[in-house]
């Protein structure tokens, strides 16, 4: 079933991404698959390695964030579903595109220091090319967040 893959991680910076995905879903009559990817790289800044328990907690958190986005989509008249993945953000978005035979991918452009973001501008462009080469999926960038 074709649809729109929308990678989010919650917070105000994800709102434009969610809005773009919902508008597109309504225009094209496609479902939105909100994707939340659990990434535990921040543990490298501590001496702990509580991957197992933290992974479970982050999945719960991810489900909650997805549920919020789904509730918003439903309220605005778009059909949506939520998917949790864990691991490398780029790889998991590509996998989700393949899994749901996506027509579109919506990517956000959060406004934090480039070095601290998975999607800095250059990498974002390279990632867009990679997704498009991988299976004819159209990549749409959402407006920049607050």
């Amino acid at each position: 079933m074709p649809g729109i893959v929308c990678a989010i991680r919650g917070g105000p910076n994800s709102q434009p991404t969610i809005n773009t995905a919902i508008s597109l879903a309504k225009d094209k009559g496609l479902p939105v698959f909100f994707v939340y990817i659990v990434n535990l790289d921040f543990l490298s800044h501590t001496q702990t390695s509580r991957v197992s328990i933290l992974s479970e907690e982050m999945q719960e958190l991810g489900e909650f964030i997805l549920l919020s986005a789904q509730a918003e989509a439903e309220e605005k008249g778009a059909y949506s579903d939520g998917i949790i993945r864990q691991g490398n953000v780029e790889e998991e978005i590509i996998n989700a595109c393949k899994e749901f035979d996506a027509d579109y991918v919506i990517l956000g452009q959060p406004q934090v220091k480039e070095s601290e973001n998975v999607f800095d501008q250059n990498r974002l462009e390279a990632f867009k090319e990679r997704i498009e080469k991988n299976g004819g999926v159209e990549v749409i960038f959402a407006e920049k967040g607050e």
Binding site: R9, G10, G11, S14, F42, E57, M58, I65, V112
Partner: peptide, 17 residues
């Protein structure tokens, strides 16, 4: 403190930096 880093990491993963 390590607890600060863990809290910040989880908050950022939820979109709150």
């Amino acid at each position: 403190a390590s607890a600060n880093m863990v809290t910040a990491g989880i908050a950022e993963a939820a979109g709150f930096r």
